[in-house]
């Protein structure tokens, strides 16, 4: 099978900015004590076509950073990433929705950010509305929306646009654990299934261990920026669970 993702010795450091980070402040502080956080230290792995990989680890272990680097949002300090196809990063939290625009306008905006033409957006438009179940609020500005509604809208738009784009690698960052009721989560899973069946490789970062066990072909456990264990999801999850309970 074709290799979709090859990650080789990725490292990433983040500068920890001190409070006084104005230009003048930096100029006047003589001690050049820059502090770094090593978010990722030497990460390497590979992913094949149609493979589902789960990424687990405690908070701040580097899961999101890793996905963001693969998705091209961050740049690694060193190391190499080879991608065979287009990678799309999808996060459950941050959304680029504009609170003072209506739902309809937001859908078009996100669509164009995804690089779709107006004609294509119109084609998916109805599906998005059906998916989100927010038909009544089409012309309401989204600052009037509740958090649950926003989550639904955010997802409905992105997932449906994704299906219309050639997407070979899908990077899901805490997608299934952010708002949305059971019913909606099922819908999202179904959509992800469809994308998967098209042959996409999917990387899921999540704290939902059951999901990882049920869904993934392989799991990676990251702790403090290093891969602790990689392999069969059940074994990796068990090792992680034991580690977490030991800490408690």
């Amino acid at each position: 099978m074709e290799k979709r993702i090859i990650v080789k010795n990725i490292r990433k450091k983040f500068k920890l900015c001190k409070k006084d980070s104005s230009f003048l402040g930096r100029l006047l502080s003589f001690s050049d004590s820059e502090d770094f956080l090593e978010a990722l230290k030497n990460i390497s792995f590979e992913a094949k076509e149609k493979e589902n990989i789960g990424i687990i680890g405690s908070n701040g272990s580097g899961k999101s950073t890793l996905l963001k680097i693969i998705g091209g949002i961050y740049e690694p300090d060193c190391g190499e990433i080879i991608l065979n196809g287009e990678a799309i990063y999808l996060s459950g939290f941050n959304n680029g929705l504009k609170s003072k625009l209506t739902m309809k306008e937001n859908i078009f905006l996100i669509g164009s950010i995804f690089g779709l033409s107006k004609r294509k957006i119109k084609k998916v438009f109805k599906r998005i509305i059906d998916f989100s179940g927010l038909e009544r609020f089409l012309d309401v500005k989204i600052n009037k929306f509740s958090t649950g509604m926003l989550t639904r809208l955010n997802f409905a738009t992105r997932i449906n646009f994704l299906k219309n784009k050639e997407c070979d690698i899908l990077l899901l960052d805490e997608v299934f654990s952010s708002g949305g009721d059971k019913n909606f989560k099922e819908k999202v899973k179904k959509e992800v299934d469809v994308i998967m069946k098209k042959g996409a490789t999917i990387l899921i970062a999540s704290h939902d261990l059951r999901l990882i066990k049920d869904y993934c072909d392989k799991a990676i456990w990251i702790e403090k920026g290093e891969i602790k264990k990689i392999g069969n999801p059940k074994e990796v999850v068990a090792a992680y669970e034991q580690y977490s309970s030991n800490i408690l």
């Binding site: 963001k68 998705g71 091209g72 949002i73 990678a87 799309i88 990063y89 996060s91 939290f93 941050n94 959304n95 680029g96 950010i113 995804f114 690089g115």
Partner: peptide, 12 residues
């Protein structure tokens, strides 16, 4: 001003 967007999507 578009920090949120830049952090969440690979945007042009």
């Amino acid at each position: 001003n578009n920090g949120n967007l830049i952090k969440s999507i690979k945007i042009n």
